[in-house]
Design a binder for these strands. Structure first.
Lengths: 226, 226
DNA sequence: TCACATTTTTGAACGGGTTCAAAATTATGC
DNA sequence: GCATAATTTTGAACCCGTTCAAAAATGTGA
């Protein structure tokens, strides 16, 4: 057997046990003792693999993000318009997250949003960004490239990041959406996608383009590190 | 002495002790035992007045919201333009919150955002909305009414709620703003206020007005309860 | 195979949020 | 003033996330 495979197996059992319990009982009601027991190890051993309960959630979130990408990317067919692409990406995002709606708040806290200052462990890298932000934006870059007709040049470069922001907004909404099956989030997606697409087309008009440029400048200013 | 004044005094001592410790050491490092000790009562007694540690934070947030209103409202002078009003409201919001930046995440979790479903205590009223949402929107209603020139009729009704949404966005940004003194949030405010004002003026143009109307419809659809 | 280092696992503790039965205090009717 | 009810306070648990020293298991070189 390959070296470390026993260790990997333990880790895998922990992740599986945790995922199942998180899914079934949410974050609060799931205990580290419960996870460890289900995985057949001691509590302390769980902490050998994960530095905290939240770290397990973070890993789950990362997994779901990857799952989202590999579901969404192959559906971005050359020639579809931007609205259609946006709709697909946003919908698959909700599809993947759906079984873990009860973990939504934790996803926000531990993964989707930047680390609150002062809470950072000194060992964590300073550039710690939102989990998977770069990769997610890449998906939107692909969506923009493959879209027909092509979005106006004036906004094309900033579009992926803006669309990612839209996704963050929708996810935020979804987390606190208490409607059955989160229907309202679904509806939000089906309304948002065409609206954004329309906006992109209209950005050919000087008035609209100026507004969009102002917004982009605003966000740049907010992101600036000084 | 009036009946219950002893009880009120205990409660007040708890709030004061808690506020001071939250401010000085943030949420995590403040303990219920510490708060109780500083207030000169037992831990159990603290729980007689507050159902949880988070409940104390929620009360603090409510207090700060009230403080914000009574600071901002008198500055909304008849005749100033909308951008100026928006700037004042957003700035004073940050001013009031500033000493409690380390509590930001808790503010979001316990007060600013809707209660995550399933976490609700059965006793809580079903209509539990974001803390102070209604009152906050009222401030913006006042800001719109007093603004000169008056915003276009077409958007005037929806404006207060939209501006409140902007405030939520800025607050969200502020919570996770790790720049010294949250300068970036300040800058965001000074850039956002004139931009929004400009947008409101432009909403006289049919293209822009249609977009704004679409956005309003989108939000209505998201809010709908069916 | 043996000595030694490394990795993995354990179980007992600690700290802090929360609960609760009982005690102490305060209010109320007579 | 006194009995009784309601309010307030206590302190000892309980639960659960987390830590840690030490034990067990595994790997490595000779």
């Amino acid at each position: 057997m390959a070296a470390g495979s026993k260790s990997e197996a333990t880790r895998r059992r922990l992740v599986e046990a945790a995922t199942e319990q998180f899914r079934g009982q949410g974050f609060e009601r799931t205990t580290m003792r419960g996870i460890a027991a289900a995985a057949g190890v001691s509590v302390g051993n769980a902490y050998y693999y994960f530095s905290s309960k939240e770290a397990i959630v973070a890993e789950l979130y990362r997994t779901l993000q990857n799952q989202h990408r590999s579901t969404a990317l192959p559906q971005l067919r050359e020639g579809h318009n931007l609205g259609e692409h946006l709709r697909v990406i946003l919908q698959t995002n909700l599809d993947v997250l759906a079984p873990y709606h009860s973990l939504g708040h934790q996803f926000l806290k531990t993964a989707a949003l930047p680390v609150p200052p002062g809470t950072r462990k000194s060992s964590a890298p300073a550039d710690a960004e939102q989990v998977g932000r770069g990769k997610s934006i890449a998906v939107y870059r692909q969506a923009v490239q493959a879209a027909r007709p092509q979005p106006p040049l004036a906004v094309r470069d900033d579009l992926p990041e803006l669309l990612w922001l839209v996704q963050m907004g929708v996810t935020l909404f979804w987390v606190y959406d208490s409607s059955p099956g989160q229907v309202r989030s679904r509806r939000l997606v089906s309304n948002t996608a065409p609206l954004v697409a329309k906006l992109v087309i209209l950005s050919r008009l000087p008035v609209v383009r100026n507004i969009v440029e102002d917004v982009v400048k605003l966000l740049r200013g907010a992101r600036a590190h000084d």
